[in-house]
Nucleic acid binder design. Structure first.
Lengths: 111, 111
DNA sequence: CGTGTAAGGAATTCTGACACG
DNA sequence: CGTGTAAGGAATTCTGACACG
């Protein structure tokens, strides 16, 4: 689940290819960026570069819009989901911290 | 080993990005194509598109050339390796065929 | 042989704006 | 609100060629 993100997350695809792959117009793709739904990379005033992950996100966005969802709502949902994810991560780290405090040093004995 | 080739093999990257990612000049990248070492995709007279796999291949090529290997030799090696791979695949299928001929139908009884 | 470069053209991408609904 | 489009400019890519070694 955390393996091979190397390719999926690399922002290397131009908007033309993204358009072909998603079936969306370049106008739509740029607009969803304006509405803060996707975040292509841009080096020194150059052209936008997208990742395979961005493409999947775009397909999800397109589906939701077809269902009548507004970009604002989509954004709220994305923020909410991210928040939940962050909280889980923090909890996980806290529990790990507790465990380490109690058993961290002893661990060495087992190995 | 056969999972997630979906991204690695998709030809979606322009030559400019490939150049950045490999450190090779566009001239070099096009030349290696001329020497049949890489095979970008081109739709209707459009620009070349490369995959992440192509990028890895290019890095290997660059290393070999630095060592003094000529493009012709690199190509021969690639052909040889491909041949070995094909032969293994055929053998595998033949053995599978034999097994199926003997036990193929009975398999159903076990399940 | 492998690579650089200048040349001219074609295709791509970008932005800001007007339009419609 | 979400999307199309024409407009003009900038950046990208392409090919064939000459150059060097």
């Amino acid at each position: 689940m955390t393996i091979d993100n190397s390719y999926k997350d690399k922002k290397v695809i131009t908007i033309g290819v993204v358009s072909e792959l998603t079936g969306l117009s370049e106008r739509q793709i740029r607009y969803y960026e304006e509405r803060k739904l996707i975040f292509p990379e841009r080096k020194e005033g150059k052209s936008r570069k997208y990742s395979f992950n961005d493409i999947e996100t775009l397909i999800d966005i397109a589906n939701k819009i077809e269902e009548g969802t507004q970009t604002y709502e989509i954004r709220q949902d994305m923020i909410k989901k991210q928040k939940l994810k962050d909280e889980k991560e923090i909890k996980k780290q806290m529990i790990q911290g507790q465990l380490n405090a109690h058993f961290g040093i002893q661990k060495k004995h087992y190995r």
